[in-house]
Design a protein around this nucleic acid. Sequence first.
DNA 1: TTGTCTGCAAAATATTTGCAGGGAA
DNA 2: TTCCCTGCAAATATTTTGCAGACAA
Lengths: 128, 128
Amino acid sequence: MPATIQRRNTRQRQLVLDAVTGRCDHPTAEEVYTEVRQRDPKISRGTVYRNLNLLSDEGTILTVHVPGGNRFDLRTDNHSHVMCRRCGAVVDAPVTYNAHADKEAARATGYVVESHGTVFLGLCPNCR
Amino acid sequence: MPATIQRRNTRQRQLVLDAVTGRCDHPTAEEVYTEVRQRDPKISRGTVYRNLNLLSDEGTILTVHVPGGNRFDLRTDNHSHVMCRRCGAVVDAPVTYNAHADKEAARATGYVVESHGTVFLGLCPNCR
DNA sequence: TTGTCTGCAAAATATTTGCAGGGAA
DNA sequence: TTCCCTGCAAATATTTTGCAGACAA
């Protein structure tokens, strides 16, 4: 059983984290890449993807799976998202997290249920 | 405003629909492709994707967005899914659809909310 | 006959990974 | 000095699309 890998604080990792933390529109990996490139034109896509996955794995940021690809979120508590089916905008949805639903799903399926994610679909104020 | 396009019943489209309807494990596009190829070795990926999208658009099947890609489902009523984070298996979760949540999300965000999808994450009986 | 649909292939999109050098601790 | 991390580039993976011929209605 290997010990936990010792992480290092690199400038690139901090830039990626800052890019996610500094905005509230749930950017895609490509948008994060574009943003960090403005600070450091040398940073590569591979590094951005690696750090997004690493930060998500360790729980510092959250990966939100929505139609069309992944989005990244600075909030890591259980919460929902609303996505516009026309322009793709994603915002947080302050809807009560129903922890009871996890137990219901576990009982019905035999799975060990750890969490759930809910994505609402509709039209944003601009697109409707 | 263009009239609705007149759809045609092709052998390929029926094979794709049968492949989704005939199984209950929420296949990926690639799995559907593999299955229809056994019936018709000439069918192309493009045709499979086109028909999956077409059937999904017209509401005959459902596209389920989960981490790792899209899955297709013969059930089109609002229902949830449970996914194993280890092996990727997806099953239906007979959890009560909370229509009230849509209104709650709409009020909180200003979006017009039409529906929502919930994906539970955990471990299936085999992987736990 | 009309116009949708198909197979093929190329393109577009999204993400991962091998490798050799760089740098944090 | 160790070994995790980076840039680069190639490899994967997934899905879409242009085109000419095929076929359902």
